[in-house]
Design a binder for these strands. Sequence first.
DNA 1: AATTGACACAACCGCGATGGT
DNA 2: CACCATCGCGGTTGTGTCAAT
Length: 306
Amino acid sequence: MRSCRRESRVRKGPWSAEEDEVLINFVNQNGPRGWSSIQSKGLLPRTGKSCRLRWVNKLRPNLKVGCKFSAEEERIVVELQARFGNKWATIASHLSGRTDNDVKNFWSSRKKRLARTLSSTSQPTNKHPCRNQIKQNSTPLPQLPSNLEVPESSNSMIQVGAPSSLTSESIQTVNGSLISTNPSKKSAISESSWFIQHPNPNPAPALSESYNTLPLLPDHHQMIDFESVFAESITSFSQSSFHSTNGYDFDMSFFGGSLEGSCSKSVVVPVQRDPVGNLINNPDGFFDDFPTDVFDCLDPLPTSLD
DNA sequence: AATTGACACAACCGCGATGGT
DNA sequence: CACCATCGCGGTTGTGTCAAT
């Protein structure tokens, strides 16, 4: 069969420097198109698809090769993923020198890391049984500052706790918040990233606005006991500036750079509820991929009837 | 020193969209 | 309008590296 013979000539796997050179020469002469002709002309034993991918992901000019995502790039990815979903090419178009593959790999590795962190920390252990105990709904939520606002049009997913720098005493997160940690546990924190998704399906405002107006605490938000979830990773926090009577310390700059401080014990997450107040998981939400027991530590919010 | 796990990165595959005939 | 080739995108898998044990 002719097709079989042709397929047997197709080379797969890593590209050699010689192949790259041939491909670059081809693009220089013909532009980034007509990929299939590379194989049909016998220039390379690669499919057009493979050639295009190699060019787009590795050989194209002005690519950022071998350089990790900066904190700013991470923030942009998180924001745009929340807005566009898994439209990696669209997201990549907002990041100079990054490809859709870069963004996709970045996101999936971050997602795996978070899932792993959650699945491990949400499992009660014998070591710290009390700290790992899921908070029961008998505990009233602390009163939150009344001047907090949420951009209603925002569909932003914000990243909490991804460090842009580490010292022996603290973590500087991507949004500028400073979290004090137990030095012996900092590596555990550095492996953790938190994403919080705003459920509002409406289009987000322009990036420049939404970056500075990360969602805070309207009445449809809930709290995750941060200390419980991170029991194995965190033993103490400092830098809190809001203290509630039931032991929760808050400082909302944890959710954005415009306010001050950090959230020391709890994480506030926006949620959706049905008409009778039951928690609805966002069907397209990032949390859907988490172990189901992650949500066990969510407290029911007071409804408008309360 | 060997093993293991996590991670980043590269590449492939399947599928839908698009454009030409 | 149908068919086909090509392109582009998103999901997935494979592989190398490095740190921890």
